[in-house]
Amino acid sequence: MISAGLMNTLQVTVLVLVAAGATVVVRTRTRVRQVLALSVYGLLLAILFLVVQAPDVTLSELTVGAIALPIILLLAIAKVSKPDRKRER
């Protein structure tokens, strides 16, 4: 069993990571990179839900936030992106 102090430290650390991740997503200006950052952010959120003891929400967030949403966004970007790929890369 993890002690309460360690758990608090863990929760604060993950909260800070989530805040940092959200900032990175907003600050990323390239679309594909932004989606990848969003995927990592989904993973961080999943970890946050795990450390606040909500394992079922963790699974939902992991599947939807880190996998399904980025895939759908990537496909949509691939569909609409025009040949001006120099900016993209």
Binding site: P55, D56, L59, S60, L62, T63, V64, I67, A68, I71
Partner: peptide
């Protein structure tokens, strides 16, 4: 496994279904 063990573990049809779909992906 997740979709069929909702009654015994923190899992369920929603999570299991999306993971099953990612196997196809």
């Amino acid at each position: 496994w997740l979709a069929s063990h909702a009654q015994s573990n923190p899992s369920g049809g929603f999570q299991g279904g999306v993971i099953l779909a990612s196997a196809f992906l």
